[in-house]
Amino acid sequence: MDKRGLGRGLNALLVGTAAEDVARNVREIRLDSIAPNPMQPRTHFDDGSLSELAQSIREHGVLQPVVVRRLATDRYELIVGERRLRASRLAGRTTIPAVVQECSDRDMLLLALIENIQREDIGPVEQARAYQRMASDFGMTQDEIAKSVGKSRQAVGNAMRLLALPDAILGALEAGRITEGHARLLVPLEPAMQMAALDAFVSRSLSVREAEAVVRNLRRGESGGRGAAPSRLEPADPNLASLEDQLSLTLGTKVKVRSSSDGGGAVTIEFYSPEQLEGIVERILRQP
C-alpha cells in the first residue's frame, strides 16, 4: 500500500461503487474466525460507548464493514474496525460484514492508527505511543509519520514529546486528571518541578491558563533559589521570565533568557535529540 494515500484515511479503502464493493469481496464473516489486530494502538474502549454502538447495531446492523486480512482458510486478522467487532459481539451477532484486504504489518499498524485518529477519541498518550511505535518498529521519521496520518510534523513531534514525561504524569493524563494542554506545560520542566506542578494542577483543579501561572511561579523560584555565585548575566526579571514561558511553550522545550548590565544577554534553548533540534529550528524559521 502506498503510504502517500494513507493521509486520505479509510474512505479511500471503503467507499466506492457497488461494482467496486463486489471486486473487493465484501462478505459476511463469522466473528469467531476473526483474530484481533495485534498492532491495535488503542488500549481502552469505553464500555458505555460500546453499549450504545451495540444497540445501534441491533437496530440497524453494521453500516460499515470492518477490514480484515486472510491468515489461512476461514481464518482472518482484523485490520480496522475494533469497536464494530466488539459491539457486534455485544449485540449477539455471529457474523459481521468485512472487506478482505491484502495488507503488510506496516500498513496494518498505520491503518489502525488512522482509524482511531479520524474518530478523534484516541487518547493523547495512546496516540503518542503509536507514533513512537511507527518510528521504532518501522524506522519512520517524523515527516513520514506526519504524511502517513495526515498531520503536521509539528503535531506529531509535540505528541511524541509527551512520552518524555514520567509515568505518573502520563497516568494522570490517561486517567483524565489533567488534559494534554496541562501535560505540554510540564514537558520543559525539571522532574522535581514537574511533579510539584502536577500536584498543584490536580489538587486545585486548575484550568490550563491557571496552570501556566503555576509553572511561571515555579520557574521563577528555580531561578531565585540557585546558590551559584553571581555572574555578569543577571537572573531574568519578570518580563524576561514571561518571555521564557512563551518561548518554552512555543518551542516545546526549556528556554532560558538572561540579561546583562550592558543591555545584552543570552538565550539558551535546550534539546534532547537531533530530531527535537530539527523541530525547534523549523518552528523558529516559520515564525513571521
Rank of each mutant, 00 (worst) to 15 (best):
G5Y: 10
G7T: 14
V15N: 06
D21I: 12
V22I: 08
N25C: 14
V26S: 01
V26A: 03
I34H: 14
L50S: 12
L53Y: 00
A54T: 01
Q55W: 08
E59K: 12
V62I: 14
V68M: 05
R69V: 08
R70H: 03
Y76E: 07
E77D: 03
L78C: 07
L78A: 05
R86L: 15
R89C: 08
G92W: 00
R93N: 09
T95Q: 13
T95A: 14
C103A: 04
D105H: 13
R106N: 06
D107N: 14
D107G: 11
I117Y: 04
A128C: 03
R129K: 13
Q132I: 02
S136H: 11
F138V: 02
Q142C: 08
Q142F: 13
I145N: 04
A146C: 08
S148P: 13
K151G: 02
A155G: 10
I169C: 00
G171D: 07
A172K: 00
E174K: 00
R177N: 09
G181I: 04
V187Y: 01
P188L: 03
P191C: 12
P191M: 11
Q194C: 06
D199P: 02
V202I: 15
S205D: 10
A213E: 15
L218T: 03
S223W: 07
R226N: 12
A228P: 02
S231V: 02
L233I: 03
E234R: 15
P235E: 07
A241P: 10
L249P: 03
K256Q: 09
V257Y: 05
G264M: 08
A266I: 14
P274I: 06
Q276A: 02
Q276F: 01
R283S: 15
I284F: 10
